[in-house]
Nucleic acid binder design. Structure first.
Lengths: 132, 132
DNA sequence: CGGAATCCTTGTAGATACTG
DNA sequence: CAGTATCTACAAGGATTCCG
């Protein structure tokens, strides 16, 4: 990447970039999805997000929020009151994404047991090959 | 994971894990999805995967394949010929996942331009505030 | 051909402290 | 309240090499 590194990784998207990677890149990271879920119900404040996500650091919340805002997935509204109040809200595009994500969740729900068993079986086979 | 750490390790999912995180954890990583896509059309060999994915290293291909196999998403079939021939194929569960992933792709396709423009606008605003 | 082992660079995220 | 800045860690991923 010849570009200047301004903090936000702005790597040149590969020309061949398949849409699959594109969306995954956008949703990757530990927190993006959880923020989308938490904000899906309507406008939510910074601190509310911080508490509802449970485990996220202030830093990561800010960073992830910034990226989502940059991609046009959340809007940031500052209420010039005192103390300050900032609300985040999903854009229509993000709401669509959220719906799609729910399909993924459904898949996970349906096959959660299958996957757990597959793992257990796989691990058992390799961990105790000396078992008689 | 009692296993030795060979590089990429799939940490035990937290008990509180919401399904969203669960599926994302499974699909995360740069290569999982691309392998699912490449193998969706039918059995495919290791080397074919390596070439069709373009950019993946031997190491990551092996590692990702192992994890997918462990989760019961791909089957690994060794043909005891010489030279060796190993074929990977998606399981029914993985095919379902693949379909769901396509919905995500559709979303990306539909909103690719919107997102690109959002980014451009966002970056422009912050990069040249001193512009006269 | 398919894969394992090793080494090294990087991104991603946590903790902490300071500000408007 | 809602951030920002810095410093650190760890684990993902790349490159290379050896093996069946």
């Amino acid at each position: 990447m010849s570009q200047r590194n301004t903090g936000v990784t702005v790597q040149v998207v590969n020309a061949h970039a398949c849409p699959v990677r594109e969306v995954l890149d956008r949703v990757s990271g530990k927190w993006s999805v959880q923020i989308l879920v938490a904000a899906a119900h309507g406008p939510i404040r910074f601190t509310e997000l911080e508490r509802s996500i449970e485990g996220i650091s202030r830093r990561m919340l800010t960073l992830t929020l910034r990226n989502l805002e940059r991609d046009g997935l959340v809007t940031r509204t500052v209420h010039p009151t005192v103390p300050p109040k900032v609300e985040y809200e999903l854009t229509p595009v993000a709401l669509e994404l959220h719906e799609t994500l729910q399909r993924l969740t459904d898949w996970a729900e349906r096959n959660r047991v299958y996957i757990a068993e597959s793992r257990a079986a796989y691990d058992t086979e390799r961990e105790e090959p000396a078992d008689a």
